[in-house]
Design a protein around this nucleic acid. Structure first.
Lengths: 210, 210
DNA sequence: TTGCCAAGTTAACGATGTTAAGTGTAGCAT
DNA sequence: ATGCTACACTTAACATCGTTAACTTGGCAA
């Protein structure tokens, strides 16, 4: 009957439970609600048992960051897939719009990804976070390249084009960041975002028409 | 000799010492380094003594946020004062440039102000943080109004003008936020920022010339 | 069957925010 | 001057946290 080799299977399941519970706590109570003891309690083990899976709490957060990046990446990618038949304007807008919607739906994950929240956590030039960032931006950059009448390799290879793209990203990212953290609550954040997006896209395309 | 009514004077000094030590810890070790017990240890009292001055740790953070806003406000205001004789372009750039420089010099304070970092801390439509935000933006908005050929009251009173200004703010804010949190380390963040700033200012002024 | 390895447990250490109860003193009213 | 009161402050304690050390146990390989 081979009780399905409980060893590895349960290990996998427990690990999934741990990060699922961690993400749940992050969403509901912010990073400070993500505690080893609390998670252990919830998944039915003792706290030190989690050190089998993560060397420290910081590494659990690293996993959360990676998964959050993945969620954002998937959200943006599928939105751009669905927009493949639309006009250039709409395709350009689809990425940032999906970016914003994911951010609003997962505020804590958004802040976790883009803000240094964990104490000693740096996440510099190494680690999987850099790859994750480029994975998020690549499909958006592809549309951007089309709007500028170039290929994506042109954009990535030219300092000025790349900086322009990063600035374009930073711009709508900033508006989203302000909204996520309630600094635009006294206005209509979506209106501000969409208005900026339309203007920036127009400004982007018109010079290419010259 | 009237030993200068030690009561209130010492109270004032101790309070100043507390927030000074708190700010020092924030800058050096991030929010998690701001602990009541650590601060109390440093200023020479026991931890519960601090509850005379702050009802809870969150209220100490509120004070830090307010003071950080003040620092940003002062930095921007004095930069704009110093730029009063310059061209419109330079005056428009002076605010955002001071904004960025302050942010880079006080990364932790910048993140504390613009990101929900404290657990249950919301800081919604009430509190002094809203006033602080408008105090920071007002002088920048004044220059923005000139560039649009309006008065600042025009900008604040017109939905579209106001949204345009907030989007303009959000744009350079976003680039700064990315830089502060090391998401642009693989490029030259200042170049991206200045290039965006110049382009956005040009785009801002040219329509007004029509 | 025997032994080992790794996952899990209990126990403990140091640190945190916060509360309760007690202490002393500064300043004021009498 | 004396007594009282308010308040700054201390000590003690509780619940929580991350992390480590030592021990137990169960399944797999030899």
């Amino acid at each position: 009957m081979a009780k399905e080799t409980r060893g590895i299977r349960q290990r996998r399941e427990l690990l999934d439970d741990v990060v699922a519970e961690a993400r749940r706590r992050l969403e509901q109570g912010g990073p400070s609600a993500v505690t080893l003891r609390g998670i252990a309690r919830e998944v039915g083990v003792t706290a030190p048992a989690l050190y089998t899976y993560f060397p420290s709490l910081a590494d659990l957060f690293t996993e959360l960051i990676v998964q959050s990046y993945q969620g954002l990446e998937d959200s943006v990618a599928s939105a751009l897939d669905a927009a493949s038949d639309l006009s250039l304007d709409d395709r350009l807008a689809a990425g940032p719009i999906a970016y914003r919607q994911w951010a609003i739906k997962h505020r804590q994950q958004f802040n976790l990804v883009f803000f240094d929240q964990i104490a000693g956590y740096a996440a510099p030039a190494d680690g999987p976070t850099v790859d994750a960032q480029t994975a998020v931006l690549r499909p958006i950059a592809a549309e951007y390249a089309v709007a500028r009448g170039r290929t994506i390799d042109d954009v990535l290879g030219d300092d000025e084009l790349l900086d322009d793209f990063l600035a374009w990203w930073g711009a709508f990212h900033g508006i989203v960041a302000l909204e996520v953290n309630h600094h635009l609550d006294w206005r209509d954040p979506e209106a501000i975002f969409l208005r900026h997006l339309a203007a920036s896209i127009q400004h982007l395309i018109s010079p290419a028409e010259l």
